[in-house]
Design a binder for these strands. Structure first.
Lengths: 189, 189, 189, 189
DNA sequence: AATGAATGAGGTTTCATTCAT
DNA sequence: GATGAATGAAACCTCATTCAT
């Protein structure tokens, strides 16, 4: 595997463990057995590395979301289910970059940040669109604001990165089911 | 007001704006017109300051939660409502320390962190207890895991600190209503 | 003597010997037996140090020039003589800062540079004024451009910093006499 | 044109704009669309490049001076005039390398420096020789030290690189005339 | 003839912290 | 109570140079 990729992977691991500010370039290159010069041969700055990590992650997420959106003939409940499942499953698959993604956006420079924010917004608006379409087709209640519901879903799912351990006693399927039941039918008896 | 309090307030403001690692003691004392020596007269380290901020915040939250829990004769749905309302209202009242609280826990030393985590856990377990009690009393469905639902509620609410502007077009009451409706009755038609 | 002054003096010596870019903060503080931290306690940057050196030098020069300008009753030839003498004598007195002054202006930031340039220009315009006044009073020929003559004088004198050794075989008085003779009466037989 | 020449020209431009120390090899090769490897194929070091620039310049100057010196039958005043004219005209023709030449000699290694200094000295001694010969032939006053006068001339002319803009309001002919009048006949009325 | 990857030493700067006063 | 001077470790980054290809 080429060095640039190794640097990115190692950085993700360290950023996730210690945080972006607390991880030095030295830490990264030392873990790989290369020199700082090598790092700066591939990246122009620490911030640029973080930007690449962010874009890589959100782009991957958007691509997967696209498949959900475009899958024809599915009900909107199913689309929502797929979305929640996507986010939770990512914890198992890419837990680390996800956590870096959620925690370290503040360290992007304004320009990088706005690029990333735009894509995150797109992801959120897609969820909102599912809800709105579901409302129009009579699947969902129409007396709720779709935008706020979208935020609720995102919060519920994303927060899981803070505590959910896919290798723990709760499986990701179980978590998804609980979230979806709560979301679709509520907890009231 | 005494200096120690001023330091805490100023720090909260700066930590929230720039982040803990990105804020130097110099920044804090400069904004107050005192010197670094003064800071170290009141605090033994930067970390200790952060710990005090965390404890102050979570203790305040726990005290308010206690009132909700102990209020006799209320239904569990109401207790849940009060809890969600508490968390969202805090954004308006103490948005800044809340954001610091959610973002900067990683910078606490293990001992401080475990103390804070324990209190956070207590807050979460209290929510869980409300749900469990509600289940026992027949208010809530019994086929869902109370612990996961508690996480869902916390995620939904806490995530709001990332985007919700209490001075924006959506009021905090509206947000609480939407969250509670979703939570209690679900979004399905 | 206080440390800030020591830093300035040591820097001047090193800048003169090795050049600004080639002198590191490390070099400076090592020569004084203090640490880099100390340097940055007194100066906000390497550039700020250079700026102080420049301003200190040109301000001193301007003050001395003022005395020459304001001395009443002297002929303009005398004022010119005093000016040339001032510049040459400075080599003996403050050779080092003078050389730093002449060589390292490029390393000032634009704002500092413009401040310094303005003062250097003032010094030159004062020379020009002496010549113009001398022309008006009939002391000097009126068929030469005073501004170009001022540049000629400055060039002649300032260039001396490149080669003149006040402890060498030529005395500064002798050099001043030769320059003034050349300047006032020319070298033609 | 071959690459080596291109590198030299590009370097001169960058050295003149930003200074030798402030210009990196990267800057140079990037501006030319080649790589650092290419640079080191043609030059053994950055210093060697500077040396070539210096030698190229001073050799050119010496060759032109030779023509002035050897031109038979001209008066010494004329030879002096030609010399001054040569130096001033060079600003228009080769302003950039000239400025690099005057400013960056400090960055030559001792061996290169001494080679260049020797040639610079030769140029100066040639001027001195003109003056001495002029004295012997009665063209010039004999009560001045020829060496110091030579320095005065060089200073006057070389300093012009610091301020004279050949495309500005003053023409180079005008400047040469003023310098020569001052030099030959003085400014006294 | 030219490239691209890699190095390693050194540069400026930041900053939490200490301590005598 | 509070200050100001000083530290020292570490941060990010630059760059001339080397070398296998």
């Amino acid at each position: 595997m080429d060095i640039k990729k190794k640097i990115i992977e190692q950085s993700i691991q360290l950023f996730e463990m210690k945080g972006f500010s607390e991880t030095s370039i030295q830490d990264v290159v030392e873990a790989l057995g290369v020199t700082k010069g090598t790092f700066y041969y591939y990246f122009s700055s620490k911030e640029q590395l973080l930007r690449e990590i962010h874009l890589m992650y959100i782009d991957g997420l958007l691509k997967l979301q696209e498949q959900i959106m475009e899958n024809p003939g599915t009900r909107y409940q199913t689309k929502l289910y797929e979305t929640v499942k996507l986010l939770i499953t990512q914890i198992k698959v890419t837990g680390r970059p996800a956590r870096v993604f959620h925690r370290e956006m503040r360290h992007l420079k304004p320009e990088s940040a706005s690029m990333v924010k735009q894509k995150r917004k797109l992801f959120r608006l897609n969820i909102q669109k599912i809800i709105e379409s579901g409302m129009e087709h009579g699947e969902f209640r129409q007396d709720l604001r779709a935008d706020l519901v979208a935020f609720a879903i995102l919060g519920m799912c994303n927060w899981s990165y803070n505590w959910f351990d896919p290798n723990g006693p709760v499986t990701d399927e179980e978590l998804v089911e609980t979230y979806m039941e709560t979301l679709l039918n509520g907890i009231v008896n």
